[in-house]
């Protein structure tokens, strides 16, 4: 049997990170924002849906390989429904789902140098009984996850995620926005993140050009055929399933960016 030293392990992890980051780079950012009466998730996409319902008060959006996203999505749905049926909907929690099921499974694959890694970054959103119980959780390809209050972002690079976070941090500093405001904040964040990612990919552009503003960039992007996909978890409705896909006309009505 060939020997496998700590150095090999180190190198394999590094290569694996490069491989994954490389594949995530082109991803269309996904943004989640807690608004007055719920949680909004938003992205721009071509034809394939990117934002999904997991359970009554759980939704999920991700970037990465579609087959990997599907596996995580289905896995989460299975775990949630088996638990929700055999115990109660109240026992289905994001904290349990992430810490005990998703994270360990992904971590295991990530740490196995002979396994195909999961190419995925995802946001899970859980609607709480009250706004302070809302949870936004970012799950990464290495199994690690972070919980953030107020908003969460995923994008093709750490730099673009930082830029989006900066924008949302200052914009939500005064408390949760209305749904309309949240849609516009998320759209602008998307443009900032995507623009940053694209500038990294094309470093040789003529530096004299003033880059377009995020608003201009967004308008240009929408002309190329990308469509806005926005979903919400609504707090003040009587439906058991709080998830709803915002209709195109609703999004259009909100959009001022």
């Amino acid at each position: 049997m060939p020997s496998f030293s700590p150095y090999d392990w180190n190198e394999s992890i590094q290569q694996r990170n490069e491989y994954i980051e490389d594949r995530l780079r082109e991803g269309s950012p996904v943004i989640a924002v807690a608004y007055e009466d719920g949680i909004l998730m938003l992205t721009l996409r071509h034809n394939q849906r990117k934002l999904y319902e997991i359970y009554d008060k759980l939704m999920f959006g991700a970037i990465g390989n579609h087959s990997d996203i599907e596996q995580i999505r289905i896995g989460a749905i299975d775990v949630a429904h088996a638990e929700g049926f055999s115990r109660s909907a109240d026992d289905v929690s994001l904290q349990r789902l992430a810490s005990f099921r998703l994270s360990p499974a992904i971590k295991k694959i990530y740490s196995d140098p002979f396994a195909q890694p999961v190419v995925l970054k995802g946001i899970f959103a859980e609607l709480g009984k009250t706004a302070d119980k809302d949870i936004l959780l970012v799950l990464s390809y290495d199994g690690e996850f972070t919980i953030t209050p107020g908003y969460a972002v995923i994008g093709g690079s750490f730099g673009s995620e930082d830029k989006m976070s900066d924008h949302l941090k200052s914009a939500t500093a005064d408390g949760a926005p209305s749904l309309g405001t949240a849609v516009n904040l998320a759209l602008k964040a998307w443009a900032i993140g995507k623009q940053h990612a694209e500038s990294l990919n094309r470093p040789n552009d003529d530096e004299d050009d003033t880059p377009p503003t995020p608003e201009e960039f967004l308008a240009e992007t929408l002309k190329t055929g990308l469509v806005i996909e926005a979903t919400v978890l609504e707090r003040n409705v009587t439906r058991e399933s709080r998830y709803r896909v915002l209709r195109a006309d609703e999004v259009k009505e909100f959009t001022t960016v």
């Binding site: 749905i77 299975d78 775990v79 088996a82 999961v118």
Partner: peptide, 12 residues
């Protein structure tokens, strides 16, 4: 990867 043993067939 299976998150629950039963998931493979049920989800399809």
């Amino acid at each position: 990867m299976t998150l629950s043993n039963a998931s493979e067939h049920a989800s399809s």
